[in-house]
Nucleic acid binder design. Structure first.
Length: 486
RNA sequence: GGCGGCGUGGCCGAGUGGUUCAGGCAGGGGCCUGCAAAGCCCUUUACGGCGGUUCGAUUCCGCCCGCCGCCUCCA
């Protein structure tokens, strides 16, 4: 069974599911006030990989990821651009899903919006008030953190140390600096909802409690997000659930962030690259590969160098798709029906093929290693290493004339890639008439051993953006430029 | 101040108390090819510093140095 690092206990421990065969997963989604950057892309990819891997293992996954569509930053942007908060939220939610689609991130099972859950958040706040764990003050409704059992669990901080580190807000109406807003009283010009405690809007930490418990139920399996959400966001979510007397997440999973020159990429530092910028010049799969090449809890550097590196590595994997004619499905789309899913099925598919035995055994051991790495806290770098070895084994088998064995190994590699959400591509299949004509002419030149002419034609094709590969079927063209490259 | 993370060969990046090796990219040599491309084979450069534990540490412990993060909104 999968073992995962749990922020709550600080150790890697088995994922014990609430319901057998079914995983309930909640991941904090974006606040839609700006275009997503590489850091958002990373968390989306990390949890997409977790989800896909679990599904590949045959588990049902209910994946909930929210959209925060009301918040200070959205309000600020709407004000400065003289338009409504809803317009701002809609615009950036659209750009969020667009980026996710391009990254090949599978849509979550549910994508609840904060504004659709305001009534339930009001109920939650009322209940907390009723229990005497929250209080109303001029600024809104606050949770009394000190009344919550185990506050500081996720951040591994004692109440005292949190208190000593807390900054004092000058005009706060909070009883303790650690208390946080469940409900923010309306300020002039801000959107607000009516409530028993006056007009206002929900605090950020409340929506995830309501939506996760509402859609997944108590005691759900995994709550995820990026590492910077541990405190205060997740701590405060947990505090509310505990205060309500409800069981919350069994397992807390947090991914590391994207760094630039050793520093965290963030909006406030201004050192961010938007996903749009990256995807305009890079194959989205290369970014997925770049993310997978580091452990999900480690920081990653995204630089032209590391991106180019990932592109080259991807080209190597695509090479087997090209060589063995493996058709990649569209990112996020259905898997090819012919893709073997693990070796047991493959064995059933090919029981009578002579000479397949050794390759099947080898493939089985690669799959086993892959699973071993992935089950060990999602060791995707280790898992990838095996896939690259598998690719080499497939090529070597083909070089040695073992076509059947090579195909088994290659399709196993492809299957393992798909478990990571990485769809291999044989490359551009569409050759324009001009290029096709040049290729045909080059075949004729080579047939009559006019190599000077053949080389001239290769040059011409190179100028059109093609890499020429000779094969038994004749000149084969492969795009040498990258999407969007000029 | 409290809590936490990181420092591996040209670059990226795993991992482990001890003989062989992560893996990718780049470099060198070879095979294949008309020449290439792709592929395959071989190959070079490691574990921040100082102590300690140990028969033996990159791996465990302590200290130090350097870098980073959270404790405020943040993916």
């Amino acid at each position: 069974m999968l073992r995962l690092h749990d922020t709550g206990t600080g150790e890697v421990r088995p994922l014990e599911l609430r319901d057998e065969g079914r995983v309930s997963l909640y991941v904090c989604g974006p606040t839609v006030y700006d275009t997503p950057h590489l850091g958002h892309g990373r968390f989306a990819l990390v949890f997409d990989v977790l989800r896909r891997y679990l599904e590949w293992r045959g588990l049902e996954v209910i994946y909930v990821s929210n959209i925060t569509d009301i918040d200070d930053k959205i309000i600020a942007r709407a004000a400065s651009e003289h338009r409504s908060e809803a317009e701002v939220a809609q615009q950036f939610e659209a750009s969020w899903w667009d980026a996710m689609d391009r990254l090949g991130v599978k849509r979550p099972s549910h994508t609840p919006h904060a504004t659709a859950y305001v009534d339930q958040m009001i109920e939650l706040v009322s209940e907390l008030l009723g229990r005497g764990l929250a209080y109303v003050s001029p600024g809104g409704v606050y949770l009394s953190v000190e009344a919550v059992d185990g506050y500081g669990l996720l951040g591994h901080q004692s109440l005292d140390s949190l208190r000593s580190g807390a900054r004092v807000e000058p005009d706060s109406s909070k009883r303790s600096p650690l208390d946080f807003a469940l409900w923010k009283a309306a300020k002039p010009g801000e959107p607000s909802w009516d409530s028993p405690f006056g007009p206002g809007r929900p605090g950020w930490h409340t929506e995830c409690v309501v939506m996760s418990l509402g859609l997944l139920g108590e005691d759900f399996d995994i709550h995820g997000g990026a590492i910077d959400l541990i405190f205060p966001h997740h701590e405060n979510e947990r505090a509310q659930a505990v205060a309500l007397g409800r069981r919350f997440a069994r397992h807390w999973v947090h991914n590391g962030w994207v760094e630039v020159g050793g520093e965290k990429m963030s909006k406030s530092l201004g050192n961010f690259t938007s996903l749009d910028d990256l995807l305009a010049r890079t194959d989205a799969r290369a970014y997925r590969l770049l993310v997978l090449r580091s452990h999900y809890r480690s920081p990653i550097e995204v630089t032209p160098r590391t991106v180019a590196d990932a592109e080259e590595a991807l080209a190597r994997l695509d090479g087997i798709a090209r060589r063995f004619g493996l058709a990649g499905g569209p990112p996020g789309g259905p898997r090819p029906a012919t893709a073997p899913h693990g070796v047991s099925r493959m064995g059933r598919q090919r029981p009578d093929v002579p000479g397949a035995g050794t390759a099947l055994e080898a493939a089985a051991s690669y799959v086993e290693r892959f699973v071993g790495h992935m089950d060990d806290d999602l060791d995707t770098p280790g898992a990838l290493a095996g896939i690259f070895e598998l690719a080499r084994a497939a090529n070597a088998a083909a070089d040695a004339g073992d076509g059947t064995g090579a195909e088994i190994l290659a399709s196993t590699a492809q299957d393992l890639c798909s478990a990571l959400g990485l769809e291999l591509s044989p490359g551009s299949q569409e050759v324009d008439a001009l290029s096709a004509g040049l290729a045909a002419e080059r075949d004729q030149a080579r047939a009559r051993r006019d190599f000077q002419r053949a080389d001239e034609l290769r040059e011409q094709l190179a100028e059109l953006g093609w890499t020429v590969e000779d094969s038994q079927e004749g000149t084969r063209l492969r795009r040498s430029d990258r999407p969007g490259a000029s």
